[in-house]
């Protein structure tokens, strides 16, 4: 894997200088490479991984399985592109298996999310069925533990 991508995937807050040292590149090379990655759409953004459960934010996340009737010209893309316009929608993916689209939604309450599904998603043309699953507890996201890790037991007596 591209070393810079690996570094950014681990910690997007590294400075250019730090990345240059770790990847054995000059700072100019790092900047140029990053600019290219952004321009090519490989790097889409830099975000923090926030454990919202540890804040006072009131929120609830749900994963919704959608079955879609694909259209002849655009397949699943038409509905997916429509759904991704909503601000409430965090992610949209086309899936293999028993349903077609997986949509992640965050709202303030269970009711918020349920109403969004009922009023916004279900009525869309092409949406055949929905199944809403609420997230109860997050253990790990994108390789980062959201639980307290184990103590380092090395070097003990």
């Amino acid at each position: 894997m591209d070393t810079l991508l690996h570094l950014l995937d681990t910690n997007a807050r590294l400075s250019t200088k730090q990345m240059a040292i770790m990847a054995d590149m000059t700072e100019q090379q790092v900047e140029a490479h990053l600019a290219k990655l952004e321009k090519d759409g490989v790097v889409r953004g830099y975000k923090a991984l926030i454990d919202w459960d540890r804040t006072d934010r009131e929120y609830v996340t749900a994963i919704i399985d959608l079955q879609i009737a694909p259209t002849k010209d655009r397949g699943f893309d038409g509905v997916a592109e429509l759904i991704m316009q909503f601000d409430e929608v965090e992610s949209v993916s086309l899936m293999s298996g028993g349903y077609d689209l997986s949509v992640t939604i965050t709202g303030r309450s269970f009711r918020d999310v349920a109403m969004f599904v009922a009023k916004r998603l279900s009525p869309l043309d092409g949406v055949l069925s929905t199944a809403t699953h609420f997230v109860l507890k997050k253990y790990k996201e994108r390789g980062v533990l959201f639980t307290d890790g184990e103590k380092d037991e090395r070097g003990q007596l």
């Binding site: 070393t3 570094l7 730090q18 040292i21 770790m22 990847a23 054995d24």
Partner: peptide, 9 residues
């Protein structure tokens, strides 16, 4: 190796 470069520097 990544850590090595970082810590040496």
């Amino acid at each position: 190796n990544i850590r090595r470069r970082f810590i040496v520097d």
